[in-house]
């Protein structure tokens, strides 16, 4: 058997791309640990680049890759549902801060979508791109749903949300220094709101309290945005 036939035989099997995805992720995690957990070399980002390079080199298209990778992707649904558990765990603290949290969540989510759309529009982004940019601060599984809903590209929206997550973690220390933010609640909540899962993972490194509020912000922003973004988009005449 020629080596090319061998490749075609294996690439056609979904299992191969699941294995590659897991291996790329583990490799990316190891690399990230080695450089001291820098957000710029986030495991997701590194794994994505590794896999894209491999797909390009082997001439494999995304659909073929996704035939295998969809089994991992599928778990995003139940994982999103599972976010109810940490929310339930911190219900007492949430109840106490209900008003400040709601106000911060509404103004933050609104700022996120309106500023993205305005800046994008100003810089001449196409409508399809704008609609994919709109849910950028929302955690990817929800961003995919929202983009689908308003007529953007779901998979582009997911990628842009991932980029936002990395950017948020890089900018956060600067912002907290500027504002002299000491409150762990405010730090966690703003990280989760603007940088969703990435911000939550980053906040978890500070303390579990910071992480819990980041998780809360991610959940709340997700729910609120799925109602808010279609509305804002319609008001701005984009769909």
């Amino acid at each position: 058997m020629e080596i090319t036939n061998f490749w075609v035989y294996f690439a056609a099997r979904p299992l191969f791309w699941i294995v590659i995805t897991l291996m790329a992720f583990l490799l990316a995690m190891a690399l990230n640990r080695k450089v001291g957990g820098s957000a710029l070399l986030h495991p997701v980002l590194v794994a994505m680049v590794l896999i894209i390079v491999l797909l390009q080199l082997s001439g494999t298209d995304y659909d073929t890759y996704f035939e295998g990778a969809q089994f991992i992707h599928f778990l995003l649904g139940p994982a999103t549902v599972a976010l109810a558990v940490p929310l339930f765990d911190h219900r007492e603290r949430i109840r106490r801060l209900l008003v400040p949290l709601s106000v911060a969540c509404i103004s933050g989510s609104l700022t996120a979508v309106v500023s993205t759309l305005l800046i994008g529009q100003l810089l001449g982004a196409s409508d399809a791109l704008l609609l994919s940019l709109a849910p950028k601060s929302v955690t990817s599984p929800i961003a995919i749903g929202i983009a689908d809903q308003i007529g953007g590209y779901p998979s582009l929206a997911a990628g842009l949300a991932l980029m936002t997550g990395v950017i948020g973690c890089l900018l956060a220390p600067l912002v907290f220094k500027m504002l002299k933010t000491r409150s762990e609640t405010a730090i966690g909540f703003s990280l989760g709101l603007s940088a969703h899962g990435f911000g939550t993972a980053y906040a978890m490194q500070r303390s579990t309290l910071t992480g819990a509020f980041a998780g809360l912000a991610m959940g709340l922003t997700g729910v609120l945005s799925s109602l808010l973004i279609p509305l804002v988009v319609r008001l701005m005449g984009l769909s």
Partner: peptide
């Protein structure tokens, strides 16, 4: 974060 990888490759 692992679960984001397949969608991310879609970029």
């Amino acid at each position: 974060s692992l679960l984001f990888v397949p969608a991310g490759v879609g970029l």
